[in-house]
Structures are given as structure tokens and as C-alpha cells.
Amino acid sequence: MKEFMRSIFSLYANPYVSVIFRWAVGLIFIYASVDKLLNPLAFGVAVYNYKILPGGFINLVAITLPWLELICGILLIAGLFPRAAALIVSVLLLIFFSALSTSLYRGIDISCGCFSVNTTADTIGISSMIRDLLILPMSIQILLFDEGLIGIGRGQDGRRFKPHNLA
């Protein structure tokens, strides 16, 4: 059992797995940002509908959050500052998760605003929370174990290729 746990864990900790996760999370975040970037006002309405932020902050979030998502997505795929980007993504996912869960708890029937700003599509529900929780372990894996392999940035200790990873 201990050996099995250890092999599962070392698979999770594998730096090549984080390359796959980087692409997955990166593509998800880039895809999620596009519609919001094109329609900031409509995304503002989606943010407003959550009724969490005070009105004065809604426009600022609607303007900056899509760019943050896009840039983090690009950095993850490019492998530049991947762990910092993964830290931001993890924090964002936790914020999204708490927003979703409080809205569900309060019984507000609103659209997610996750991937599309269309107010009629993609109503929040358990599925959007599960989706959120599936991305979180990937970003945490990147945060903990990424070594910047297959990317334009320099790895953890400043070297691009680390011999012990290839063994």
C-alpha cells in the first residue's frame, strides 16, 4: 500500500506531468478569458449578479480579471514564471469556488460567467463547482512541482535542463 501511494505520489510530482497540466490549465484560462475580454460590460453584469462585490469595484474587476486570466494562461503554456502563474490561478480558482458556493447556498439562480458572458447560458450549479475543483489540483501540482520543462523560462534553479530529471 505504501509503495502504491508512493508511486501515485511520484507520478503526481513528476515535472513532465506538470507540463501537461500547464497546457491544460493554460488553454482553459485563455479560452475563459476571450469572451470576457470582448464584452467587458456584459462580464460586469455577470460579476454584479453574484452580488458579492460592492458596486464601485465591479468595473475594475470586469476590466482587469480577464486580462489576468489571459496572461496567466499564456505564461503557463509558455513556461515563463509558471509557478507564480499557477499560484495566481490557484488563488483565483479558490475565489471562484467560494463565489460559486456562496451563491448556490444563497439560492441565487445566475449564470456562471465562467466561460461565456451570455446571461442565458451556463447557469451555476454543482457542475461548475466540480469543474473548478478539477482544475485546482492541476494548478497546485504546477505550483509545487513544475520545473519549467519545455518552456521559454529558466527552471527552478536557473538551469533549463536538469540531468536528474532525465534519469
Binding site: N39, P40, L41, G44, Y48, G55, G56, I58, N59, L60, A62, I63, T64, P66, W67, L68, I71, C72, L75, F81, A84, A85, I88
Partner: peptide, 26 residues
């Protein structure tokens, strides 16, 4: 990353045609 994102967002918001005021009346 945060500073770069905010700067890009504010710049594009100032340049784009359908820009939002930074503080809106909701």
C-alpha cells in the same frame, strides 16, 4: 504578473471603443 496584467487592462480599456469607466454606477 499582477502589475503587468493591471497595466495592460487599463491601457486597453482606455484605448478600446467599448471601454468602461473605472468606477461604474451599479
Amino acid at each position: 504578473i499582477l502589475l503587468f496584467s493591471v497595466a495592460t487592462a487599463l491601457m486597453t480599456n482606455a484605448l478600446r471603443s467599448n471601454s468602461l469607466p473605472l468606477v461604474g454606477d451599479w
